[in-house]
Design a protein around this nucleic acid. Structure first.
Lengths: 356, 356
DNA sequence: CTGAAAGCGCTAACAT
DNA sequence: ATGTTAGCGCTTTCAG
């Protein structure tokens, strides 16, 4: 704390190193060719006098226009992906001041072809960076490989593609979230023998990666703590309200003793709606994600616990990782950014969304 | 999204309003006297063309030096206040680029006089803004009133002083955190008749406000859900290890059937340490705050639940509220910023500290 | 009350 | 390979 010096500038560095500020800039950004000798000299001076670039001046003087393309599913109000959009929007706003423009390409998450098309359009638009929710792994991998050869940084949101080259990933630790779910649903009750797990049926699609990773975590917990417990896996429709009602009706007619229920997807409200309609109570229900319909169900006590993460903030951070990389040449501190697993109870949820 | 205009600048506004950019600046910041007529004109133009100031240019060109003074307890490594320090440090770093300098005045949280002295020194240093943890309410109120007359913005961290004039408050919703604690400790067990509540003895000090608010929340829950349940309130020493051991020993000798224990302070690790030493198990223990010793106890299963909030981020945000106000003339979106009540389990805690 | 102009620290194009 | 310089958009004197 002894240093009250008025912050070194490039000019100070230039003077001390006996070069011009242009040269300092070159070595700071290893922009053009600089002789090894002066380079060394400048670098030495920089850390001697503790020079740190002024990001405000840097941003202000930047001429380059950057375009970031966002590839995510389109959505209805209240759905999971709306949270992602919120975060993207916030970053988009901030980006304006830095000459970064954001375009979003939406795809139909239930149609492989739609995803491929979005990827194609993205590349054709010659972006400087890409944010993608890579639901279809193989198609996404193609895109990402392409980006690698074109030196276009890619950030993943929600799911990650292993063994691919990317700038950063932002999303929940999926396996662990399933493990935690099991503990919250069954913990301390070694005698429970049955649990129902309802998930979204994605038809043609290769099983959703997020869901299956969560499922593995869930199984792992049972294995260790409750090996006798049986999981009934059932599939809900993403669209068809009535067929879901029938699904629940018939499942619980057949298995009236199943009192522990969860979904690994974001639609626990489908189940709690059924409970409301049928007046079912006394069953413990757990779900994921902070959409308002889930939160309502939690507040009413229909859902006993919600495991959430600040999806909106994750999306924002993913965008910022891209922006900072492009504008400030700053690589993210961490490549894999796992979100916290937030356990929401009806008594804590009111304070969950308040801070930014 | 139809507006691709290259972002209006002050110059655009000036041109359209037929005045100079100096005048535009004056009305934007209602800096000096401007005739009502031109003022109106400029304002109209501004929202017609949707002018938004460029914060980077603004920061870069600012000449004013701002000093923020932070008044917090001093602490040992691993204590609660270290978290606050972390957040302050981060903001301090960011402040450097904006000509804001931060000085911290530490006080002894167990000595009233020490707090008063810190407040006095703070005022004498003629700061432009103050961040304070107002543990001693009345003394703090004097300072804050003083600041109000001097137009020095004040931000509170951790606790708030009612009916005082302040820029922003950042801290947990205390009453609700006590309520939640009760639910997590006793929820679903209407038959529990006894619970032990250990807190830090602050001697001379008027009862710690945070703790008593939490306690009220805890009582409220019992009142509603568990009216038969009795609370044993006991006082731990903040310093004396052995006296605490004796305290726990004798308490549990006298009340062997008390299986539900909590502390409303941040030192649940004092209790779990005792459990380790005495090999006590089978008791459910709940505490607050994310210090590493608490987190260790949680990981080991000694503590069943920890209610935490990102104290470091709160401090950071409080500082930013001050900085943004001073540098960007931007008032905080909300005055009272309640943190979320994060419920940590041994299976979720590993992901709690990862994101920023 | 209003205008003109000199920076803030950096970037990037242009010279050398 | 290195130096020079015109901005970036705003703040803040200093004149008038």
């Amino acid at each position: 704390m002894l240093k009250e010096k008025p912050k070194a500038t490039m000019e100070d560095v230039a003077a001390a190193a006996g070069v011009s500020i242009g040269t300092v800039d070159r070595v700071v950004h290893d922009r053009a060719e600089v002789s090894e000798k002066t380079r060394k000299k400048v670098l030495t001076v920089i850390d001697e006098i503790g020079y740190k670039p002024n990001i405000y001046a840097s941003i202000l003087s930047q001429k380059r226009q950057n375009t970031i393309i966002v590839i995510i599913p389109y959505f209805q109000k209240g759905e999971f992906w709306e949270l992602v959009q919120t975060g993207v929007d916030r970053a988009t706003e901030e980006g304006k001041g830095m000459n970064v423009m954001v375009k979003t390409f939406y795809y139909n998450q239930f149609e492989h072809a739609s995803f491929r098309a979005a990827c194609r359009n993205a590349i054709d638009a010659e972006p400087n960076g890409i944010l993608i929710a890579p639901i279809y792994q193989e198609a996404a991998r193609e895109l990402v490989d392409r980006c690698a050869t074109l030196s276009i940084p890619v950030a993943y949101i929600d799911t990650c593609i292993d063994q691919s080259e990317y700038l950063a990933y932002f999303g929940p630790p999926l396996f662990e979230s399933g493990y935690l779910a099991a503990d919250l649903l069954l913990g301390g009750n070694g005698h429970i023998r049955e649990v129902a797990c309802f998930n979204i049926d994605r038809g043609e699609v290769p099983a959703n990666n997020s869901i299956s990773l969560r499922h593995k975590g869930f199984e792992a917990y049972l294995q260790e703590h409750n090996p006798e417990c049986k999981i009934y896996d059932c599939w809900m429709s993403p669209f068809d309200f009535m067929s879901n009602i029938n699904l629940f009706d018939s499942f619980f007619e057949e298995h009236p003793a199943v009192n522990h229920i969860l979904t690994l997807s974001s639609r626990v409200h489908l189940i709690s709606d059924w409970m409301d309609i049928r007046g079912v109570s006394g069953k413990k229900l757990l779900g994921f994600d902070m959409m308002s319909r889930n939160i309502d169900a939690l507040r009413r006590g229909r859902v006993s616990t919600l495991i959430a993460n600040r999806t909106d903030l994750e999306a924002y951070r993913a965008m910022r990782a891209l922006i900072d990389f492009l504008v400030l040449r700053r690589s993210p501190a961490k490549k894999d950014n796992y979100s916290s697993l937030d356990i929401l109870s009806r008594y804590s949820v009111d304070f969950y969304l308040l801070d930014d």
